[in-house]
């Protein structure tokens, strides 16, 4: 069971969190003209990296905040956790 540091609450066990997927994907801005393929790529395509992966988690049974985790998808080592507006 992973041990994840919520940037707001501190270290907690994984069972308090829900996974939220790739955090490197940026939603296109509202009302912005973009091509079909740009949009579809946002909706469906994921790099699914082996190794360092920036991803969202949601402290669903805690403070209910979304945040970013940089984790190794092969070893599950967690390098860093960040608030959504922070970057590595």
């Amino acid at each position: 069971m992973l041990h994840i540091k919520c940037p707001y609450c501190g270290m907690r066990s994984q069972n308090e969190f829900a996974y939220g997927g790739d955090a490197s994907v940026k939603r296109p801005e509202l009302n912005k003209e973009i091509s079909d393929s740009e949009w579809d790529n946002f909706v469906y395509l994921r790099k699914s990296l082996r190794g360092k992966h920036l991803e969202f988690w949601h402290h669903i049974s805690g403070c209910r905040q979304w945040f970013k985790v940089q984790r190794d998808t092969a070893t599950h080592e967690i390098f860093k956790t960040l608030k959504p507006n922070e970057d590595i």
């Binding site: 829900a18 969202f56 949601h58 979304w66 959504p84 507006n85």
Partner: peptide, 13 residues
Amino acid sequence: LSHLEYYLQVVWP
């Protein structure tokens, strides 16, 4: 609820 929180906290803070 999670959906709304995601957009509020991540996409449109």
